[in-house]
């Protein structure tokens, strides 16, 4: 479960400021079309952690939103576990770029969102507690999101996502806005979660180090319109280090070059 195939995916946006459509062919777009994704073909295995890199504004978030069912592709299809995707579902949970905990609910109530349907209320309580402890937020069950730090909010959101027991997790820039230590800690947490639960996780990021340290597979997209520049399996032992692993370090230099940076550290 969690096997994803993306076939000939294409996405165009119509620039709303110059919206023009031909009267004869209402589906034909003659205004200022912006091609965002151009012929994307990818395949992700079950249980794989895939990191998607690309220059800013290239459409990597759009790609993730389409795979999650929040956005419709212009052409092509996304097939998850043999079924063509139709819309969002709790089998695939999206962890948003900005804090998406519901601010009017406590941590506990937020984590409970995905467990609403459970018949056995005792078991539900246990599961909520289990997931809160998993992200080390015990003692903050009855806090509201505004009472938590940025890192704690992200961890709470991760707990909420994992509590549903989804096949797939989508993370859009999960570390933006965190300070350095919170960033490192959250990254460690995601890697640990992945080793423990073996879920398919798609992470969109602009941080090359994050992508190489975390991913089982790395996908590099080009600038707009995005096409796949690189999709490579990362077979490096964990925990990974650029200093100890020269091959990883070499790959990092290549990725930097691919994204147009010549003087990589």
């Amino acid at each position: 479960m969690g096997h994803i195939v993306i076939k000939n995916l294409r996405k165009e946006y119509i620039d709303r400021r110059h919206k023009r459509r031909s009267k004869d062919e209402p589906n034909e777009c003659i205004g200022d079309c912006v091609l965002v994704l151009d012929n994307i073909n990818l395949e992700f295995c079950e249980g794989e952690m895939v990191t998607i890199l690309g220059p800013s504004g290239c459409g990597k978030s759009t790609l993730l939103r389409i795979i999650a069912g929040f956005d419709k592709p212009t052409a092509g299809s996304v097939v998850i576990n043999g079924e063509t995707l139709t819309g969002p579902s709790s089998d695939h949970i999206f962890v948003f770029q900005h804090n998406a905990l519901l601010p009017w609910m406590t941590v506990q109530e937020n984590v409970a969102l995905g467990l609403r349907g459970m018949e056995d209320k005792e078991m539900m309580k246990e599961q909520i507690q289990e997931h809160i402890e998993l992200v080390e937020l015990e003692g903050f069950e009855n806090h509201y999101p505004y009472q938590l730090s940025g890192g704690m909010q992200r961890r709470a959101e991760l707990a909420r996502a994992l509590a549903v027991n989804p096949d797939t997790l989508f993370m859009d820039e999960p570390f933006t806005g965190l300070d350095f230590l919170a960033h490192m800690k959250m990254r460690e947490e995601v890697v640990n979660m992945h080793e423990y639960f073996e879920k398919t996780i798609l992470v969109v990021t602009h941080d090359i180090d994050d992508a190489l340290i975390m991913g089982d597979r790395i996908v590099v997209l080009s600038g707009r319109p995005a096409h796949v520049k690189l999709s490579e399996k990362l077979d490096f032992p964990r925990p990974r280090s650029f200093v100890k692993n020269t091959e990883l370090s070499k790959l990092r230099d290549e990725v930097y070059l691919m994204l147009g940076v010549n003087y990589a550290v």
């Binding site: 969002p88 709790s90 949970i93």
Partner: peptide
């Protein structure tokens, strides 16, 4: 709008 995305993601009914 992100909260409505969350709602869709967690299969909220219209009433919810």
């Amino acid at each position: 709008p992100v909260y409505f995305h969350v709602a869709a993601n967690f299969n909220f009914t219209r009433y919810e």
